[in-house]
Design a protein around this nucleic acid. Structure first.
Lengths: 227, 227
DNA sequence: ACCTGAACACCGTTCAAGT
DNA sequence: ACCTGAACACCGTTCAAGT
């Protein structure tokens, strides 16, 4: 029989197994998400990808929630913050930044949902917050209102993306929305006069149109509502 | 040996096993959630509770998402809509309705999160939407703005509850928030002048104070922002 | 025709036991 | 001291095979 001495194979093999660090784990998670979607980015699947056991990952990552937050922080590097320092109406530029942010979330169904609950706190997220605050400052929104308003703006942007993403991602969330449209359509004028009066207008507009209006409305509210 | 003839036991035994219908399943799910929390309301655990196999539940419930939506719809019966038809400032009464809604969600960590993605469409939800629309109408908010605004108001209320709930429910989501506070506190005045300028004010106020301001701000924005 | 046991294909997280 | 195999305790969903 051939000797079972494990032939001293070169340290790095075909997929060039990287050393485990927080950084390499997150980088691998981002690649995995791009390839298979967030739903496949689990501690176990990722461990498999990194050619190790799931327990090893817990040395560097606290758990699934932290992992997803780290992925989002990474992706936030793609948000275009340049409008914050450009020329033109500050409200338009604020909307541009927020739309760029929602754009990133739209591309990654599910990530927005986790972002509502586990917020990132890395440099890209800080830069986004700073840009929004700078634009509100430029618009002479009082500091106290800006401090609370930035939260609402990011929340509304994130929640809208979460809603849209999942509607796209999940096959039957569509039915779910249809059920609501149906239910609102059926509402009788006697029991639900306002729903009946508004009718189809409750669902009018493209997501883009609604999002643009929402941002304007929340910015206006922030600017004009004293604490 | 005693004959193994299965003694014809009375049809209904101790826990009075109910017939399986959508109604009995949802009722049982609500009880289970009250007893063990939403995280335990799974198709399998619920089937166990109902003394059957999970496959049987799929005859009456489309899946986990629909199940959670049905639970929420049930709980929405507890929302106090009476301010909608009471005396007084319409903005205050609208805030009362929204606070009652968030109250229900606050009591049930996790349900708010699922509500952001799978909206209920039952009678209790319709009644809530109708009440909000009626108050906006009373406040002479233009129809088109009210139609889109009701969505934003519910979204903001739900997202805020989701955020808070999870912070309470999950043990380490707290750290997560602390990490953000820490990160924002560390931000240098040179690289992040606005974050540095606002400082602790970014996190000031009780959740109640913030929520009250948020509702006023979004209502104001809705009332004053043309489409 | 209706219902469901059993299976398929996964999860997150922990810790005792190794190197 | 560090790392991880293996286990614990679960998931959602489907479908072939029974009654």
């Amino acid at each position: 029989m051939t000797p079972r001495t494990p032939a001293p194979r070169s340290r790095r093999e075909r997929p060039a197994k990287p050393a485990l660090t927080h950084g390499t784990i997150v980088a691998s998670a981002v690649r995995l998400m791009a390839a298979e979607g967030l739903q496949r980015v689990t501690m176990r699947r990722l461990a498999q990808e990194l050619d190790t056991g799931p327990a090893s990952l817990y040395v560097y990552v606290a758990g699934t929630a932290e992992l997803h937050a780290a992925i989002l922080e990474e992706l936030l590097g793609a948000v275009d913050l340049s409008p914050a320092t450009a020329e033109g109406d500050w409200r338009d530029r604020l909307a541009q930044v927020l739309l760029s942010y929602t754009g990133v979330l739209f591309d990654h169904p599910g990530l927005a949902q986790s972002a509502l609950v586990t917020r990132p706190s890395g440099p890209h997220y800080l830069a986004l917050v700073e840009s929004i605050l700078a634009l509100l400052h430029e618009g002479e929104v009082p500091d106290g209102q800006a401090a609370w308003g930035v939260d609402v703006l990011l929340q509304v942007a994130t929640a809208t993306a979460a809603e849209q993403s999942v509607r796209e991602g999940a096959p039957d969330a569509e039915d779910d929305h249809d059920a609501l449209v149906e239910a609102l359509g059926q509402a009788s004028a006697r029991t639900h006069p306002r729903i009946a009066a508004l009718g189809a207008d409750l669902f009018s507009g493209t997501p883009q149109q609604r999002l643009a209006w929402i941002f304007r409305a929340v910015v206006n509210g922030t600017a004009t509502t004293p604490r």
